[in-house]
Amino acid sequence: MDGADHQGGLSLVELMIALALSSFLILGITQVYLDSQRTNLFQQGQLQNQESRRLVSLFLQQELSKAGYRRSPATQDMDAAFGEASGGIVKGCSFAPGQAVQYVGRSAICIRYQPRDRSDRDCLGNRAPNVAELAEPYTGTHLVFVEKIYLGSSGDLRCASAQGDEALVDGLVDLVFQVAVASSTQPRALARHVSGAPGDGQTVVGVGYKTLLRSSGKQLRDAVGKATAVADWTLLTGAGAATVSGDAGQLYQVSQGTVMLRNLMP
């Protein structure tokens, strides 16, 4: 039979071209996926730092502003409301009579205050042990909350009270407290921050804080990012590069603030 049937196919050159084009296409799609994933992780790291900064700021604003609160300042002066041993024992806290804010160390501070009413709780969510005397508003009480706010060894913001000690916010690399003191001519106005216990005759009007936060995600930036964060932190606090240990490409964020004490009535 003349003209035998036959089937045409791809030549070797055509096959190689097709493989090359598909390889470029796969590489392009893979690169887009990796870039998208890297961007997503970067954004998650930034959001984590921002959320940690927000939680730290909210907590410190909430707790530090309570320092020195008295239910009846008209009938109880500071010495009467806050005796030397008022509020029980919290490790690291040792107040002088009438003292409501104690600078413990670079990354730790103690405060004490009276509960506002029956619903008031300490930093760990515990109520006062005896709330019967808190039934009537604006009456004096012997009940006092003591709190120690400090940086834990695992990089977390912790709070200790007479009822326990718990971590509240993680993701911190460093935390620095400073005491805000007033001038002799304006006893209610912030004059400067003191890195240490205030001197004799200096009135404490607030507490300043600085935080260096770090995301949990790793390999999210190059070495320049760490160098910038360390430079900012050194400029802000005087701390050196040794403070930022355990770096593995995480994202950093520096924040600061001052909480003014509201309870400064005589």
Rank of each mutant, 00 (worst) to 15 (best):
D5I: 00
Q7Y: 03
G9C: 09
V13F: 08
L15G: 14
L19D: 00
L25F: 05
L25T: 10
L25M: 11
L27I: 09
G28Y: 11
G28S: 15
V32E: 13
D35Q: 15
S36P: 03
N40L: 14
Q43F: 07
Q43V: 11
G45T: 09
L47S: 14
L47E: 14
L47W: 10
Q48I: 01
Q48L: 08
Q50Y: 04
E51T: 08
S52I: 00
R54T: 06
R54C: 00
V56N: 02
S57A: 13
Q61I: 01
Q61P: 02
S65W: 05
Y69D: 11
R70G: 06
T75W: 00
Q76W: 02
M78C: 05
G83M: 12
E84C: 01
E84N: 11
A85Q: 11
V90C: 06
K91F: 06
S94M: 03
A96S: 12
G98H: 10
G98A: 06
V101N: 04
Q102K: 08
R106C: 00
I109Y: 01
C110L: 10
Y113P: 07
R118K: 15
S119E: 13
D120N: 14
D122W: 04
C123G: 12
R127D: 08
A128R: 07
N130Q: 14
V131I: 15
E133R: 13
A135H: 08
T139W: 00
T139R: 12
T141R: 01
H142S: 10
V144Y: 02
K148T: 00
I149R: 00
S153N: 13
S153M: 10
G155P: 03
D156A: 15
L157W: 05
L157H: 05
C159L: 09
C159N: 10
C159E: 01
C159G: 04
A162T: 12
E166T: 10
A167W: 01
G171W: 10
L172F: 10
D174R: 07
S183H: 06
T185V: 05
T185Q: 08
Q186P: 00
A189G: 00
A189L: 09
H193D: 12
V194T: 11
S195K: 13
G196L: 11
G196H: 13
P198H: 10
D200C: 04
V204G: 05
V205D: 01
V205K: 03
T211W: 00
R214L: 05
R214E: 07
S216F: 07
Q219M: 13
Q219L: 13
V230A: 14
V230M: 03
A231N: 13
W233I: 12
W233Y: 11
T234H: 13
L236P: 01
L236K: 09
T237G: 06
G238N: 09
A239L: 10
A242Y: 02
V244G: 02
S245F: 03
G249R: 06
L251R: 15
V254K: 07
S255N: 15
S255P: 07
Q256R: 15
Q256K: 14
G257W: 04
M260V: 12
L264T: 06
